[in-house]
Design a protein around this nucleic acid. Structure first.
Lengths: 216, 216
DNA sequence: CATGAAATGAAAGTAACTGTCAAAAAGTAG
DNA sequence: CTACTTTTTGACAGTTACTTTCATTTCATG
């Protein structure tokens, strides 16, 4: 839920959106993906802790320095995803008169569907692995707080716009971060149950628990 | 919001509750507090990042190994507090027919008052420093996720009891973690505004934003 | 192709943590 | 007090994530 470096769809050799970028930019995306793929592969083989940055660098055929240039921390290689700016955008599409909670319901459901449907070969698997790591590896879960903050800020913007409140209102910020915590727990609940239950239904139930954020 | 190793009130030379403990246990508490005090002092002087574990060990007059034996990570030296089991207890004291949200309001307000009133010489200062570090130092803020999880679990227990739901209900877990996120943001909002506003009033407003958790 | 800018890799350094083991301190029994 | 057991400690060496610096390579542009 952290990064917002565009629409890179992970595994595809060279993303469509990058076609017209200079060779330089395209290469950068490629190494970025190479590092990510190497990381996921190694983690699947050996687990997170056993995987060192050096191994990642080797498999991705770059130097360790380069790995750190692309990702400030090991956890970030895993944690990066691109769907939260998506939520923000989807939220804006909803009619202004709709209750905020229902707009959120719609936007989050949609984003989640897209995340799961996206690149069906690896997309879902990677997402599951990611959430599993969030739940199981303390370092990764820890770093989640950063993501939550960032995503929460984004949500504050969108919520403020919708409700006519200030972006910095206590109510807006509290609502956004409360929602973040709630959604995170929903994900954890989901993987706790081995992803057997329907995540969209779980999201619905989560939003049913939440209050609506009234307009000002 | 993490530890629950009893009622040690930090600075008091030797806490009353420990009077009758063996010399061994008393000494352990003493070094624990020595490490904490050294850490806070150094952080006040130099900031968090500039303070190394070696310096902490030196000032506390123990070896670095000992520091790591007492606190698994540097962040934990700072993050430890004792108030979340308190909230759980306070929650149980409330009448069973009271709406859950109002019980929470009361319990959290009370816990916060106690935290601020407690050992007025250093209690409040340390609490402010702690929250400030949570907001400002990524590593500390990150580690907060762990605390939130632990405190959230505690809250789940209490909430389940109150509402006749299962401790593991999605609704209970989502409500608890949502509340954690919301309260955390309240704290951040508070220090963002240099702690000028009345924290109890902010907590009230936060709970006003939250829904009630209905009984089953 | 030449020139400038950006990306890379090599290498050395820092600091947080881990594990091991022998020495010191505390508790216990005689 | 002495001897013996158990717990706690410190010294030391090792691992790994991350930083910084600098020379080299790689791309973009005129």
């Amino acid at each position: 839920m952290t990064d917002n470096d565009g629409m890179t769809t992970a595994r595809t050799p060279v993303p469509e959106a990058a076609r017209h970028l200079g060779l330089r930019e395209r290469k950068k995306l490629k190494t970025r993906m190479a590092i990510r793929d190497a990381t996921y592969a190694l983690i699947r083989e050996q687990g997170y802790e056993a995987t060192t940055v050096e191994q990642i660098a080797d498999r991705a055929e770059v130097s360790p320095s380069t790995v750190f240039r692309y990702f400030p921390a090991k956890e970030d290689i895993v944690l990066t995803d691109e769907y939260d700016s998506l939520v923000e955008g989807l939220l804006r599409e909803r009619p202004a008169h709709e209750p905020v909670r229902e707009s959120l319901r719609w936007a989050i459901r949609k984003a989640m569907s897209m995340a799961l449907a996206d690149s069906p070969d690896h997309g879902q698997d990677e997402m599951l692995l990611r959430i599993r790591l969030m739940v199981e590896v303390p370092q990764v879960r820890s770093r989640l707080m950063e993501s939550m903050s960032v995503t929460g800020r984004l949500m504050c913007r969108a919520l403020a716009e919708r409700t006519g409140r200030q972006e910095n209102d206590l109510e807006v910020r509290v609502y956004a971060m409360g929602l973040m915590g709630a959604l995170l727990e929903t994900m954890i609940y989901w993987v706790d149950g081995d992803c057997q239950e329907d995540i969209l239904e779980l999201i619905d139930r989560t939003l049913d628990v939440c209050a609506d954020l009234p307009r000002r």
